[in-house]
Amino acid sequence: MVSSVPDTSISTTGSSSSAAIKNSPNYSNVVFLKQLGEQVFQQNMKKINAEFLTITYGSLVKVLIDHYKDDVEKCNQKLKEMGKNIGSRLIDDFYSKVTTQIPRCNNLKDLGNTLSLVAFKLYLNCVPKFLFDEEEKIIKLRFDNDINIFSKFVELPDEYKNKRLYYSNIIAGIIEGALSGIALKSDVIYFSDTLLGDPFSEIHIANVKRIKDEVPMGQ
């Protein structure tokens, strides 16, 4: 599919994205983003084997559980805070690598497509499926078949399954921190996880709002 599309699509999508029709999905944009993600991933020369990352993350979660004495909610919170710290720095790196080629996001669908096709491909080498809830305006990112690198070879004991420990909750924090770096306020929730016995693992991004530059009172 991707190879059949000629390279000239780059020039066409730049103009078409500005005049996007609201209701119909912009297929050329999706194909272009898929191409862009793979291109950026291959150009990126600094890549590392993921083994060390998964092992350090696992031992970190173990340390957190030991320290908080099985209080799972604090654990989830702490992981999300860590993610925010990482995401607010990661967004700068993302723009330095991608921004000259990327089209502007006009609506929430474009935002979800760029997140799943470019950002996840670049940093985690996996592409979650993107679903959009039109009524409540929620962006859903669904991970199929253990694509998620963090929880690839992980099994949780039954204690933490009942208490709902979201093992890879750091991803939700990273997305929230990264969106706050480009003046978008959002609530990111780790909705369900296959490690806990749910049929699929999903991340929900809701209440996306633009933060406006406001002049303080009295000036």
């Binding site: 993921a50 970190l60 957190l64 720095r89 670049l122 940093y123």
Partner: peptide, 18 residues
Amino acid sequence: LTVDYIFENLIFHETIIS
């Protein structure tokens, strides 16, 4: 399984800070 170098490094620093 490959990951971006900067992403891996950020998580390494963040573990120590946390």
